[in-house]
Design a protein around this nucleic acid. Structure first.
Ligand code: MN
Ligand code: MN
Ligand code: ZN
Ligand code: ZN
Lengths: 139, 139
DNA sequence: GCTTGAATTAGACAAAGTCAAAATTCTAAT
DNA sequence: ATTAGAATTTTGACTTTGTCTAATTCAAGC
């Protein structure tokens, strides 16, 4: 057993733990998200979910991803002007972004420190700190 | 004299220094960009430029902003999933982003250090490092 | 088998941005 | 002055990503 990190059953359990009713569509979307190509866009998820046969509508994919974000099950990454990428890893970490290929790679939080940030504007609270290292192929 | 940091003449000069032929439209767009509301979007610039009377088309605003970015005269800020913000300050610095209001505020680079970043993926070169502190109103 | 609330769907719509072709303006010869 | 060629701008159609609303389907509980 344990051939895959995430079975549909373990995704259902993850949904329950985040207070999300694990319907068929939500399980498929979560499953797609936690599978392979780290950091997919909504469009890619829609394609993955419906690869074998039509299973889920566009509206449901967008609604569900928004729900996942609200419930803290996934994170949005805003690095590309034209689409949102989704990150199944919600723990603190940062990213390389290959602007030529449009691909993201994780930077583990361990060892990364930011020093000397000024205090927040008054009355504001931090929602998150993103470090994005934009890269491109040399020469 | 010197009532404004940037006159149309000084914008024209800035364009020339960046190898951009200073046409009427480009000067107006640059002037709008360097005026006030720090970090405008393309849409806001279009509105500013045409506030008094129609002066510049949508295509020219988008083309020109892209040209400015290519020539290194302004910087794009990707912080919002729905629009690009433009930053007339190209020196190294970072940003607070109020996700509720959609407003950016500068964080001067002085004193801010990032430690412990891993080496770049092989064959890649850094294009820039962005730190975005996402904030929202408390409570 | 009904009833009801939750979830999903289709399809129209909106916003931001792109693109190609036509029109205009500029430049620099003749 | 005239004209050719290049650069710039414009128009308007188009694409992509995402949103919205109303209709439909689904899942329990009775
Ligand atoms: Mn866009
Ligand atoms: Mn969008
Ligand atoms: Zn990640
Ligand atoms: Zn700035």
């Amino acid at each position: 057993m344990e051939l895959q990190k995430h079975s549909r059953e373990s995704v259902a359990e993850l949904l329950r733990r985040h207070g999300i009713n694990p319907t068929h569509q939500r399980i498929e979307i979560g499953y797609a998200l936690f599978q392979s190509p780290q950091h997919p866009s909504a469009d890619q998820i829609l394609a993955m979910v419906n690869a074998r046969h039509a299973e889920t509508s566009k509206a449901t994919v967008y609604n569900t991803l928004k729900l996942f974000v609200e419930k803290g099950m996934v994170r949005e990454l805003i690095v590309d002007p034209s689409k949102i990428y989704y990150d199944p890893n919600t723990s603190v970490h940062h990213h390389f972004y290959d602007v030529a290929a449009g691909e993201l790679a994780d930077i583990p939080a361990a060892g990364v420190h930011i020093e000397g940030l000024p205090p927040l504007p008054p009355g504001m609270v931090t929602e998150g700190i993103d470090i994005i290292v934009r890269t491109r192929p040399a020469r």
